[in-house]
């Protein structure tokens, strides 16, 4: 009797757990499928990744709508996020190293951690507004520029990189630091080449998380990168970005633009997903090599 109840409970729990898996997977699958279906026409048009968007058009008898492509937005996003990563990864990493490796319980270290926490809660539009105001006051000629956009994205990325790198460094066992110290290896060498190496998987994950966050943000770019249909023209000029294109085109009444918006959205998802899968493969390979297949 007891055994039968136990088996029954066990089975129910297993089924419930499996069901929650389905519940989690449904939104993901549904987003991918919807984006593909709605954007298919634009995605399969030949110049999707290489052309600028075509003129607005809704199909009428006797007309053929061209789609064009999302090249300016794609290039813009790569440039904006690339520069933002170049700015925020070194800053975030340095802050994390200071807090974990050198700060101990110093008030300055706790201040950095607390600031990063607060900063990561700041709404992204405020990050945009902050950079907009700063640039308008100091560099009025380039308020609307890729540089402003990257700075605004950096404001979002720095706290993510800082906090995740902090966590990653904290997971490195102290015995690794002691081992290095006891060999008479100087602190900075040990940090750069032993502690950072051991924390690398966590740091890479954090950087990717911040890249994914930045790549998907439209709000901070509205007031900074602004948008530009001509293609990327350098960091002092306004730049388009995929989320800006999605925002503009999805709310337009033109069918070809709406399709482009869906296609662009899917592209963004694939880039972020691809980056995360790629990093996992690389890290898994590194881990395998070190575990050694003797």
């Amino acid at each position: 009797m007891g055994a039968r109840i136990r088996h029954g409970v066990n089975l129910t729990a297993t089924v419930l757990a499996a069901l929650t898996l389905v519940v989690v997977l449904i939104p993901l699958a549904s987003i991918l499928v919807t984006a593909f279906q709605r954007g298919e026409a634009a995605l399969t048009s030949p110049g999707f990744f290489t052309e600028s968007p075509a003129n607005p058009c809704s199909p009428r008898a006797g007309t053929v709508c061209h789609y064009g492509g999302i090249a300016p937005a794609l290039d813009g996003t790569l440039a904006l996020v690339g520069l933002a990563a170049l700015i925020s990864v070194p800053i975030g990493l340095a802050a994390a190293i200071f807090v974990v490796e050198y700060g101990r319980d110093r008030p300055s270290a706790r201040l950095i951690t607390a600031s990063a926490d607060v900063l990561s809660g700041v709404p992204s539009i405020v990050a945009g507004l902050f950079i907009y105001t700063y640039m308008a006051a100091n560099y009025p000629q380039i308020v609307f520029s890729a540089l402003s956009g990257s700075l605004a994205l950096s404001v979002l990325m720095i706290p993510i990189v800082t906090r995740t790198a902090e966590e990653a460094l904290r997971t490195v066992p102290n015995s690794q630091r002691e081992a290095a110290e006891a060999l008479g290896i100087t602190k900075w060498k040990a940090t750069l080449r032993i502690t950072l190496g051991a924390a690398l998987p966590g740091i890479v994950t954090g950087v990717l998380l911040s890249v994914a966050r930045a790549a998907g943000e439209a709000a901070p770019l509205l007031l900074t990168a602004f948008g530009n249909n001509l293609g990327f023209q350098g960091f002092t000029q306004p730049s388009d970005a995929i989320p800006l294109l999605v925002y503009d085109f999805a709310t337009s009444p033109y069918q070809n633009w709406i399709a482009l918006a869906w296609g662009a959205a899917l592209t963004l998802i694939v880039i972020v997903l691809g980056l995360s899968i790629l990093s996992r493969l690389v890290l898994a390979r590194m881990a395998r090599r070190l575990r050694g297949s003797a």
Partner: peptide
């Protein structure tokens, strides 16, 4: 000083990310 005086700890602590 530590270069002249080596130390072995209670728990083995090889550098985990190294060969």
């Amino acid at each position: 000083v530590r270069r002249r005086i080596g130390m072995v700890f209670q728990r083995p602590n090889p550098f985990a990310t190294m060969t």
